[in-house]
C-alpha cells in the first residue's frame, strides 16, 4: 500500500557527509592546510565524526592537527 504522506524532515537542510576513506590515505599534518580546511565549517568549527566519516583515532588526529595549526595562526579559531 502506497504511503499517504511523507514524514516531514525536522530540518530543512540535508546532512552533508564527506565520506572520507580514513586518514591512512592522506596523513593528517598541521602544515597541510588545504586538507585541514576541508574539515572545517565556514565559521572554523571542526566537523563532527558523523560528517567526516573518520574513525575515532583519525578524528583525534584531525582534532590535534587543527588545534596545532590554530596555535600557529595558520587556521582561525573563529570565522
Amino acid at each position: 500500500m502506497a504511503p499517504k504522506f511523507k514524514k516531514k524532515r525536522k530540518s530543512g537542510r540535508p546532512l552533508i557527509k564527506l565520506r572520507s576513506r580514513g586518514c591512512a590515505d592522506r596523513p593528517l599534518d598541521y602544515k597541510d592546510l588545504e586538507h585541514l580546511e576541508t574539515y572545517l565549517t565556514p565559521q572554523g568549527q571542526i566537523l563532527s565524526r558523523r560528517r567526516t566519516g573518520y574513525s575515532a583515532k583519525c578524528q583525534r588526529d584531525l582534532k590535534r592537527s587543527i588545534k596545532r595549526a590554530r596555535h600557529l595562526a595558520l587556521l582561525p579559531f573563529v570565522g
Binding site: 524532515r9 525536522k10 530540518s11 537542510r13 540535508p14 546532512l15 552533508i16 565549517t41 565556514p42 566537523l47 563532527s48 558523523r50 560528517r51
Partner: peptide, 10 residues
C-alpha cells in the same frame, strides 16, 4: 554544511 544540532537527528 548545516549546523550540528539541526541536521543531527535526520
Amino acid at each position: 554544511p548545516a549546523p550540528e544540532g539541526d541536521g543531527a537527528s535526520e
